[in-house]
């Protein structure tokens, strides 16, 4: 095999894994959109907040220390203990559930029956709020997240593929990030368990009922408010997983909240209402983006990854306005 061909394979594989990372964020969007018709812009910030909380608990940071120091003139930062990763993750899940309850109780509850654009704006307001709140609670410096995930390239794969290229060619083996591979595995587990949850459990069936028709679900005795709390909690959990993966990859910092923007074209492509759509959309976007940057990017100045996903999704939507797997939009007068 020629080195160029191998390199293209490498680009595609890397694209697939980047796509999985996008899908992790898109999943949270889909869950909430399906269950409540809310386009939750705050999903990215939720991932940031979850990751910040995890790091904060793990390293024993004192919440609001910056604020307390500014008001009382003290100088406190850490409790001085380290919390084991698994306990910290459980505590963070608890925080995200609490967050879901607060969101339902104080925001969604008051906005029942509003137009979708109003709910969308409310989630943007929520995103602003949480951005500021997270920074005040845990500080805005860049943190490293260490939960014992492997990092760096896979040496084994590099050595294994070294011999694939033809003799005498300049080829050093494939480079794949170990973290990306773990993320792919986690994403697969997450999707399978979410699918099982929504297909085979009572709560899952209730979730799907609410997604189908709010009023009909209410009339057979499903509590909308409980369902919303559950959905936002699950979305919070997905955000935590996404936060861990992205945080371990590039540090826990403000730009983490911008991954929401990366997830939007994935959603468009896959359809807002489909869990498999989020995964497949992510894969298409990931591969398309990397291939475009590799093949055409250098000709037109590079950094095409900022917009290519959107344009690709746009082209796609012109032919299929509801996305790949979205429910067909039927309009009647």
């Amino acid at each position: 095999m020629s080195a160029d061909f191998l390199y293209i394979i490498e680009v595609i594989l890397n694209g697939l894994m980047a796509g999985v990372m996008y899908s992790l964020v898109a999943l949270g969007f889909v869950l909430i959109f399906k269950a409540s018709g809310i386009f939750n812009y705050a999903q990215g910030v939720m991932a940031l907040f979850a990751a910040l909380t995890l790091v904060g608990i793990q390293t024993g940071q004192i919440p609001f220390s910056h604020l307390i120091n500014a008001i009382f003139g003290t100088n406190m930062h850490h409790f001085g203990w380290q919390v084991p990763t698994i306990i910290a993750i459980l505590l963070t899940v608890g925080v995200m559930v609490l967050f879901a309850i607060i969101v339902e109780r104080y925001i969604l509850h008051h906005l029942v029956n509003q137009e979708p654009i109003i709910l969308f704006m409310a989630t943007i307001g929520l995103a602003y709020f949480m951005e500021g709140f997270g920074d005040i609670m845990w500080g805005s410096d860049i943190k490293t997240l260490d939960v014992g995930l492997p990092s760096g390239g896979s040496l084994w794969l590099e050595e294994y593929t070294l011999g694939w290229a033809a003799e005498g060619e300049n080829y050093y083996g494939m480079y794949l990030d170990k973290l990306d591979m773990v993320a792919s595995l986690v994403a697969i587990v997450l999707v399978v368990s979410l699918t099982i949850f929504s297909q085979y459990t009572k709560t899952g069936r209730a979730l799907r009922a609410v997604a189908d028709d709010h009023q009909a679900a209410l009339s057979v005795g499903i509590s909308l408010r409980t369902i919303w709390v559950i959905v936002w909690s699950i979305a919070g959990f997905v955000a935590l997983v996404a936060g861990i993966m992205w945080g371990a990859k590039s540090g826990v910092q403000f730009s983490l909240s911008l991954i929401a923007l990366k997830a939007l074209p994935v959603l468009m492509l896959g359809g807002f209402t489909s869990i498999p759509g989020a995964i497949i959309g992510g894969l298409i976007i990931g591969v398309g983006e990397k291939l475009f940057e590799y093949s055409i990017g250098p000709l037109i100045g590079g950094a095409t990854e900022n917009w290519f996903a959107y344009v690709l999704a746009l082209m796609f939507l012109v032919f299929r306005p509801q996305g790949l797997f979205g429910e067909k939009i039927i309009e009647r007068v």
């Binding site: 602003y128 500021g132 805005s140």
Partner: peptide, 20 residues
């Protein structure tokens, strides 16, 4: 920097309150 964070909180909070 603290004031900037509070600005985020207040802007976000006000948007929510207004919408509600």
């Amino acid at each position: 920097d603290l004031a900037a964070h509070f600005e985020f909180i207040i802007v976000g909070g006000l948007i929510l309150i207004f919408l509600i």
